[in-house]
Design a protein around this nucleic acid. Structure first.
Lengths: 223, 223, 223, 223
DNA sequence: GTATAATCGAGACGGTACGTCAAGTCTTATG
DNA sequence: CATAAGACTTGACGTACCGTCTCGATTATAC
């Protein structure tokens, strides 16, 4: 059962997918494709709750047993399908100013969370809590891509001299987007553009009193 | 049906609890108490998954039907029980320096998330995603208390001149703790003290390049 | 609790109803009336399943506890209410020929069973199986009246010389109507007028070969 | 889903049971058997009320969901189980005289109704009233067998010249046994051998005055 | 070509929890 | 003291989804 093993470790799979790992060749691929497509449709139509393994099996024509040979859990399937769906969405902003790009991205992600897709995102995050195998998929097929993209943004900002190179990129990312996720999950605070913009400003400038003028002003004048 | 109605709106209940609202008198209170106690035990022993309505009913001696008359969902019961459990835990630090207090609190919360209770916390947050009624309880009986406490810390920091009064407290809180929750839920980053401390520093200082020395030093001297 | 005791034995109550047994006087009567009325409405609207004790209490304005002081069970209430409803319905036929009257009555009862009220009747009979207290009420407040009426018919038939005085009236009644009830309950045979008429004929003539002409002809001529 | 569908129509199943219809093979049969066995035991121990779906599931080791895939309702399971239990009981009498056989059968059935099994029978009949799917099972797996047997008796009686060939067999059966069922269900008349014998006599001879001697005597002499 | 072995579709199954419902009992407060 | 109001226990209901398992058909390569 090469497929199972390979895919069970989501970190290993991307490299091997479709290259060597599938002795039976085309069959597994067909299954893979059909399942992810069906799952994407179901996620779109009714969110995670609709993406029942039974429903996926029915719509994809792939049997439940086969699905469980390819993925460790329902969450894993959904995570991968979701990762695919989102691959093209949310293109990175490029305003010329790296700092503005970061702010803009926070605003966009906030809007994304507030929308229908955001609901699915939240459901997936929730599902990860009690499904570590699924969580691995979510990280590998969704989060990783997002973080890579944001890392690019961040590095541009560092290169431009605006962002602080001393700040680890993981901290930067989580400080900018963690609050949004928190808000999305518990609903304790609205996800409007207004709030997102304010939040980004606070995160970028920091929470402490600064000696000089506003960072944007300073950033502009100082650059 | 005073108890039922009252409790259906989690925001309204705290004030009226046990004061006037219960015409049937002690009965409702007994039920309330028994259910929450049983739930606390179950949460401690096996987390949210163990706090089945059936299990709660069995252990508390309160019937399922009655439980569903008092709370809108399993999550709601668990949220309230958890709020109680946590009421005394996590006392606020008081080092003398407001900024150090904020940092310390981030470290403590990180440790909390990393522990067993943190698992329950994560499960509750996850459960809120598809249970808005439960989410209301979680906000009212757990989050609200936490946020109030942190707000105190923040205000001290503002008063001391270290924290930026222009930053909305909700932003401050979410910037400091949102990243931790994000990390806890998806597991994409470890929750060690080391990382927590670094994170707090980044959040406090901001992500952008600063003209002068360390924020703490500057904060102190600048005040 | 005189009302309870009195009413618990349905055979004793009819005589005493409203004469001596109710020390509280008007109050009990009001309760009695309201409950039976509400129950009648509910039975009409949705059959026995609709006549929930909660529903009866709600509609009548009489509390559940009070209802249970007056009647031993839900079935008992429904049985009595049903008995009342049916008191005036199904007047006895009077064609001049006692035998024809019996036949006609079988046909009418068959039609009754086939209708909506027949459904309620069947539900009550069913409810009696595991509720002997309710069964007593059903016998006292519904069956007794019916049997008395049919007994009259039978006695006319005997007097006219058509019916066999050697046949116990209870046998006669059950032979004529028992089959209809059986058919109504299990649905193994349709309840059409056609079938009812044939049945009545078979029951009246007997199942064995007869030496002479039709029983009716003989009955008439022989009288 | 052969088993499920097949069994959903109780009339169709008996022929196909265990012959061709089960692609999954032994599994369905095992379930079937285990459920019916457990149900039989429960019915014996505590009647229909004891044959809870939960109890059946627990005792048979078959899950509730599976039970509900095989049968439309609890009543249906019980009906089939009861049909099996009764298959061998109540052997037909054979006294030489067909008419005596009919009488004897009425007496036996009366005794059966009066006993423990009769209680279960009554409960099943009652359950049929509000469960038409269950009623179909009851007819198919219990009543049908009984009626077939009695039909044999009846045909012997007709062949012997004693029974009236003009009487439809369904009428004959219901006239002979309907009264017993009626009495059993409402309890308005005792089910003693004495009464059963009298009843049979009345049913056989008919309710009307006869010109000649007793039907038995006449039947014998007339044949 | 044919054997061999895996892959797969179909779906039965056990398990576990869900949220609901009604019966009947009991308590408190009212008149 | 009879009531109204309704909280409460009990016990069963029927459903949903998960993940495992079995069976038999299909198919791809190795012989």
């Amino acid at each position: 059962m090469p497929q199972r093993r390979t895919d069970a470790d989501p970190r290993a799979e991307p490299a091997s997918l479709g290259i060597v790992a599938h002795p039976t060749g085309p069959r597994s691929q067909r299954v893979h494709e059909a399942v992810l497509l069906a799952t994407q449709e179901l996620l779109t139509e009714g969110g995670l709750p609709a993406a029942t393994v039974d429903a996926i099996a029915a719509r994809s024509g792939v049997s439940k047993a086969t699905i469980y040979k390819h993925w460790p859990s329902r969450t894993a399937v959904a995570a991968k399908a979701f990762g695919r769906m989102m691959a093209e969405e949310l293109p990175l902003p490029d305003t010329g100013s790296a700092v503005d790009d970061l702010t803009e991205q926070v605003v966009r992600v906030s809007a994304f969370y507030a929308g229908e897709r955001g609901q699915v995102f939240a459901q997936l995050v929730a599902a990860c809590v009690d499904d570590s195998a699924g969580a691995a998929y979510f990280r590998a097929y969704f989060l990783a891509g997002r973080r890579t993209a944001i890392t690019g943004l961040w590095q541009r900002a560092v290169a431009s001299g605006a962002a602080d190179p001393a700040v680890p990129v993981d901290d930067a990312i989580d400080i900018l987007f963690g609050p949004l996720i928190f808000r999305r999950l518990t609903g304790h605070y609205p996800l409007t553009e207004e709030h997102a913009r304010t939040l980004a400003l606070s995160a970028l400038r920091g929470l402490l009193v600064r000696p000089a003028a506003s960072p944007v002003a300073r950033g502009t004048s100082g650059a």
